[in-house]
Structures are given as structure tokens and as C-alpha cells.
Design a binder for these strands. Structure first.
Lengths: 425, 425
DNA sequence: CTGTTGGCGCGGAGCCGACAA
DNA sequence: TTGTCGGCTCCGCGCCAACAG
């Protein structure tokens, strides 16, 4: 029950619609969302996946979750499939990925590629407007900001009085919507009148939601929506308990890791606090190439309400495991931070290394020869700072995996305990 | 995001609304739905739970699902909580249950109680009408069947011309809806006019859906809906893959069974093909008290479109495991049947013993003294017909657990294999 | 430049009985 | 008994410019 944009091989689930311009999907997802490239190697974080489920179901884990000792906090995988989707009911965008954990041999043979994912190619001719009360009321139409209209709408014929034209825009399901675009009033302004209210009604838009218009290279007008209400989106509680969902994602990943078989995940960019499938190269660069220490200043990108990007500044206050018992030696949100601005409403108190940009860059010392790293991030053995709470200085390695091939552990599972189903504490 | 009707102890999830008349929930669920009683012992069937997920997500299991050898096909549990809910968006009814697998000691001490669940007390003064095209069009109101109006609506004052009154009905979320009830036209008929269309719009009703009006003992008018479209209800595919959901429910139940801890399930009576949590007494009566054989005739209750009940006749064509590899010795849909009427559209080709009513009843031979059954339905040891495909005659026991206490296996897990995460085939 | 409001006209929501099934 | 339709009325959707921020 969703439209799909297939980025690669055959979609396993027989989705029908494809070939929709992925610009619209990315525009709806936001400027910071970046999907990994099909066929490349990625790192999957069960903790991040769990966070998404917790946000989606609006419930933290309540019951007891079994341990999966063979499931590392970061799981290297081959990305076999990436498809973009949009919920038919709500137009909520999400991506489906098919991952396959790498065998020890594959990990050994791995060379970290250079590419770091599909750049979130924000289209040039687009605009995003937050709907006002007037835009969504039944009293009138949609007031188009002047610059927006001139940039993304076809030019009006100003010989007419008033200048009018019909706009045809396609939404993410490839459905056509027609609007009357008129330039009138005193002072003059661009308006969408006829056709606008049926769109608002059909999409159930309210003041505070946003619409996105895109004029792409093929001279097509695309139309997307983004809902304001972050809290409590879908609540599929009537299907499966949230505890079972948490167990399900962990057990599915653990099973796939144990058997080197494929598993499928969904990524909801609008609800998910942080991406939990990232390119291996991005991970390697951040973990082995970056030196961070307590007190260090950093920048981090955030999305604004108007769908643009701004930087927030902060200071690293600690480096430690987020969940030492369940996920020891995890890179997920291992950096504790404080934010400069007091209005740090939804900014997390913990971030991951690849999310931030340290300000004080140390000079790099490339090694004289390719360094062989003996299981540099094996979950079974501690990190350099693995036992240090709030370490003073952390530097992972001078080794640059983007410049030199990275040698990976020969057998990441060889000293792990047999998988059991036991309580944590 | 749902209303809840609490049947017992404190709801763990902090739901706010309660105390709604459960008559409405049962009316919306259908006349055959019967929830087990709080505090009693029940039998949980992972296979049935899996069926519900498959129907809800509209996807069969595609990937590979790990085995859970310690999870028996029928799991005896204590029922700690039962709450009735309705989805806020769709009014879809569902129940939440908290189950706790019994310890070997508890199973040993079990006496099968007599009660067999909350009788689905269909209220007396109610009616259910399938909406016509005229009922749902914007052209007019709702045509009330004469008998229905006279039975469940307050009597009109026929001294007026025409007789009119205002009806106030509460839906399952306790929201008030007001309607103008008038008796007019030539010939005279009961109609709901003002207020009806806003209800149809708000609930997104279409022709084919049903409405239910109930006049309960407290002189309250209740109003429920039932949607016609059985196929593809909610599709929460954007949260968790259906494979992960299947794994999740199995892993959650297996973990709870291994640790004797509580787990939570949701039951959707409108989408679920068969109830997968049934009272222990009902199970025991069907499995130990009933003799069935190939060729035997039986009756089974089904719900009609008009929310009433009718019997369909059929013949038993075989008795065997539905999924011999994954669920050996399972009572779930162990009876293969053929239906008399060729229009057996959605009637399953396999049913469970407790769903049918054999027509040829053998005389009962109560034992002279309480019979001690050594693990009569332990999953690790075969049933009397466990190795027989399409057995000619099956009789489980003359022992009647409703008349005599049933002695249960001392340790249902003692000879099970250690839990592993291995492929099936 | 753009959000909101008063004015107002017209299309469809919605009430009615007439039919017929 | 009740589903659908033509007729009719009137409410409110929706187009317009006038403001003001």
C-alpha cells in the first residue's frame, strides 16, 4: 500500500509504481537525509533502529528484552536493495533497505570505497512554505510567496488582465493535481485558487504543515507535503506490541548476522532521530580518522522549520557507552555533548562521531605504509577508550581508510559467546 | 492513541479513557468474538498470532524465520490483563492481553475451571444496517429500517406533525453525535437527517460499511461502525518489516516462555482469521473430550453480513499437522475439512477442534476415578495421532476436564532441546 | 510583501415527497 | 417497506479587493 521508487534491483515485494523522481522523496525527507548507495557496504546500528521503533510507537521499552550476544552494536552489511516509499494514506516518506551481514571472509577482503552515499541532491528550483491559517481555511486559496512563484512556477502571460494559468503538479504517488494560478489583488500577489481546497482536504493538511513545489529539469511540476506534527505519528499498536517490535528487530538482525542472510529494515527519515544505516566509508572516516576529546568544540547540522540547514555549536562533555550493559563498546551516541544555545529543545544530549564536525582539527599523520588493523572495532574486544569513562582524549587512529585499503577482522564472531536467551541484569 | 476499556487491573500503558460500555466493543467485534476472562488460564497459539500478522500486513512470511524449539505450538498462560481498545483514526476494534506462561509447578497445580470466557453478550436492543449508496451520498440522510427504529430509538411524539426528536449517540471513543430523527414521507418512514452527513464524513464511511445502534439498560444510545473492506486494512509497513514482526512475536513468546515472564499481544477480531488465545477449559474440552474421525460431519458457526450468526456444514477430510516441520504436534488447524456449499469463499480448509461442533456425538464414558494424565499435550511427545497422517479415527481421551481436575505435566520443558537459532530445512 | 477579513455569488449539501422495487 | 430520484432552498465554499503589519 505504498508507492515505491526503486533504486536498483528488482523489488522483492512486487511494488507496482516506480520511476518517480527521487527529488521529491528527498525534498520531503529533508536536506540532511542521505541514503547509502546500492551495492555498497554499510554499517547498521540496532540501537538506532530501536530508537526509531520507540519514536514511531511512542513507547519506550517496558518489558524485558532478551540479549543477543552475537549481535554487535555495529553490523557491517552489504546493501542489496534501497527503495523509496510513501505511505498511501499519509504520504509519510520512508525507505526500505535489504541488508546482508558480511561473512568473515568478505570483511577480510573489504576495501573501503570512497563514495559516501547518494548525495541528497536538493533540487534548485523548489520552495517550501509552512501553511498559514489562511492557506488552510475554507475561506480562500493559497498565497504564494513572490520569489517562490517566480522561481518555480512557469511564467505568467502578463498581457492578460489579470494574468492566469493552470498549473498541473504531480504528488509523490504520481497523482495529478490542478490549480488555478492567478496574479491579482492590491498589492498584486500570486495565488492558487481553484483546486487548492480539494488538495488541502484530500491530504488533510492543517496550518503548520508544509508544502513543497519543485520544478525539475524535465519541466515537471512536483508537489510534496511535510506534516508539522512530529509527535505521535502512526501508532500501529493494534498489530504488535512495541516490546515485540523491539525484540523482532533485534532477533531479525541477530538471526541474519548468525546465518549471513538478508534482512529488511524500514527507515523513516521524518521520525527517526538519527540515521542507523550509514555508509561504511563514512563510519570508518569518523571512527578512525577523527580525534575528539572532552572539551573540544564542534558543529553539527540541523534542519530548520523552513527545510533549510543551519549549524549549531556545542562542546564535547564526555565519551562513553550509552548503554554499557546491553551495548558495550558501541559507537552509537558515544559522545556526550552540551549545546551552546539554551533553546536546545529536541537536540540530543548524545551524538555519534559521524554526525559532528570537530572544530579544532589536528594535523594528520599518514602512516608510511598501510597499517594492518587487528580487529579495530570488533565488538568483543574493547576500544582504545572502551574502559575509560569520560576519557580526556580520544583518538582512534591516524589510519585513513579513504586513502588506504582497510583490513578488517578475520573472524568477527570467533570469540563471541553462543547466542542465548537470558536476562540482561 | 486509542480508547481503552479496562476489564481488570491497572492498565500498564496509562490509557486515559475507560468505563465505556463493552457492549459496543462486542457489537463491533461481531457475535462470535469471545474474550477470555481476566485471571483465568488460557492457551496461546503462536501460529494463530502469526496468521493475524500475516493478514494485517497483507504479507506472508518471505524471508527465513529462525526456529524457537522451546516455544511449544500451544502455550499455557495466566491471563493478567485484558483491555478493549479502538483505533482513534479508524475505530478498528482490538484487544490487548498480557499473558504469563505458567511455570511447571503452576501447570502441575492447575485445575481446569468451568468458565469458558466472557460470553459475547449481544445486547437486546440493537440493530446493524449495511449502508446503501443513498445512506452515504451527500444527497440525503439515513433511512432507518422501521423495526430497528421502533426497537432501539426512543419513541417519537406522534402528536407532532411530523414527529421529530433529537437523538444523541455516543461512539466507542465516548464522543457524542447528534442526529435529527424524523418520521415523514409518503409512505411514512424513519429518517436521520441533520447531523448524519457529518458523521459519515468524519468516520469516512462508504456504501457497504455498517452502523450499529444500541439502546442499553442505562438508557444510553451507543453508535458503532464496522467497515466492509476486509482486505488490506492497516499497513504499518513503514515501521517494521513483516518478517521482523513474525520473528518478533515468536521471539517475544519464546523469551517469555523461557523466563516465565509476561508478554503482551494484540488481538484484532475483525482481521484475525481465528482466535489465538482461548480459555484453557475450552481447549481441554475440545482436545480431550471430543472424538473426531475422517468422514465425520460437523457444524461450525459463521458470521453473516448482517452481523448475525449462521451454521455451515462440512465433513472432516483429514487430521494432520498443518506445518509438520515448524510446528509438529500442533492442535492449530489440525483438522482438514470440506464444506458442503460450493460458495466456501473465505471459509478455511483447516480448522481447530474447538471451532467445530461434531454432529455424531459418541456417548461419554466418565472414568471411575480421576485419571492422572502424564503430560497429555506436551509438545515434546507425540499425540495419539501425532505420527498418523489423515488418521481414520481420532479420540483423545474420555477424560473430562470439566468434571474432574486435570493434572498437568510436571515439567513441560525438561526434555526440550536447548534454544538455538538455526535454519529449519 | 503577505496574512487576515468583509463582501458576495453560486454551486452543491441537504430536506422534501414522488415513485417503484 | 425502503432505495433512489427530481425538485427546491439555503448555507457556506471560495473568489475578490481592502486593509494592516
Amino acid at each position: 500500500m505504498s508507492s515505491a521508487i526503486d533504486l536498483g534491483e528488482q523489488d522483492e515485494q512486487g511494488e507496482e509504481k516506480r520511476c518517480l523522481n527521487s527529488e521529491l522523496w528527498h525534498a520531503c525527507s529533508g536536506p540532511l537525509v542521505c541514503l547509502p548507495t546500492l551495492g555498497t557496504r554499510v554499517v547498521y546500528f540496532p540501537q538506532g533502529h530501536s530508537e526509531q521503533v520507540a519514536v514511531s510507537t511512542n513507547k519506550e521499552v517496558e518489558g524485558h528484552i532478551p540479549n543477543y550476544p552475537n549481535l554487535p552494536p555495529q553490523l557491517m552489511c552489504q546493501l542489496h536493495n534501497v527503495t523509496m516509499h510513501a505511505d498511501v494514506e499519509t504520504d509519510e516518506v520512508y525507505a526500505q533497505m535489504t541488508l546482508q551481514p558480511l561473512t568473515p571472509q568478505e570483511q577480510k577482503d573489504t576495501f573501503v570505497p570512497i563514495e559516501i552515499g547518494i548525495a541528497s541532491k536538493q533540487p534548485m528550483n523548489y520552495f517550501c512554505k509552512i501553511l498559514t491559517a489562511s492557506d488552510t481555511s475554507t475561506h480562500g486559496g493559497f498565497s504564494v510567496p513572490r520569489r517562490a512563484a517566480e522561481k518555480v512556477f512557469p511564467p505568467l502571460d502578463f498581457s492578460q488582465q489579470p494574468p492566469v494559468q493552470e498549473l498541473i503538479a504531480r504528488d509523490i504517488h504520481d497523482v495529478e493535481w490542478k490549480f488555478r494560478h492567478i496574479f491579482r489583488g492590491q498589492p498584486k500577489r500570486h495565488l492558487l485558487t481553484t483546486g487548492w481546497s480539494v488538495f488541502v482536504t484530500a491530504k488533510r493538511l492543517v496550518a503548520g504543515d508544509s508544502v513543497i513545489f519543485i520544478w525539475n529539469e524535465k519541466n515537471q511540476l512536483l508537489l510534496g507535503i511535510r506534516r508539522a506534527s512530529r509527535p505521535q505519528t502512526v501508532m500501529p499498536s493494534s498489530v504488535l506490541s512495541s516490546d515485540s517490535m523491539h525484540i523482532g528487530l533485534l532477533a531479525a538482525a541477530a538471526h541474519a548476522a548468525a546465518t549471513n542472510s538478508r534482512f529488511t529494515i524500514f527507515f523513516n527519515p521524518r521520525t527517526c532521530p538519527s540515521e542507523f544505516v550509514i555508509p561504511l566509508s563514512k563510519y570508518a572516516k569518523a571512527v578512525y580518522h577523527t580525534r575528539v576529546s572532552v572539551g573540544m568544540r564542534f558543529r553539527m547540522l540541523f534542519e530548520t522549520e523552513e527545510s533549510s540547514v543551519r549549524r549549531y555549536m556545542g562542546t564535547i562533555t564526555g565519551i562513553s557507552d550509552m548503554e554499557p550493559l546491553r551495548w558495550p563498546n558501541s559507537q552509537w551516541r558515544s559522545v556526550k555533548v552540551g549545546w551552546d544555545e539554551s533553546t536546545a529543545g529536541d537536540r540530543q544530549p548524545r551524538v555519534s562521531l559521524w554526525e559532528i564536525e570537530p572544530l579544532t582539527t589536528f594535523p594528520m599523520y599518514p602512516p608510511l605504509f598501510p597499517l594492518r588493523l587487528k580487529r579495530p572495532w570488533h565488538p568483543g574486544i574493547p576500544f582504545p577508550y572502551g574502559d575509560i569513562e569520560d576519557a580526556e582524549i580520544l583518538y582512534n587512529s591516524y589510519y585513513d581508510p579513504l586513502l588506504y585499503p582497510m583490513v578488517l577482522p578475520e573472524s568477527p564472531l570467533e570469540d563471541a559467546e553462543p547466542e542465548a536467551d537470558e536476562p540482561t541484569a
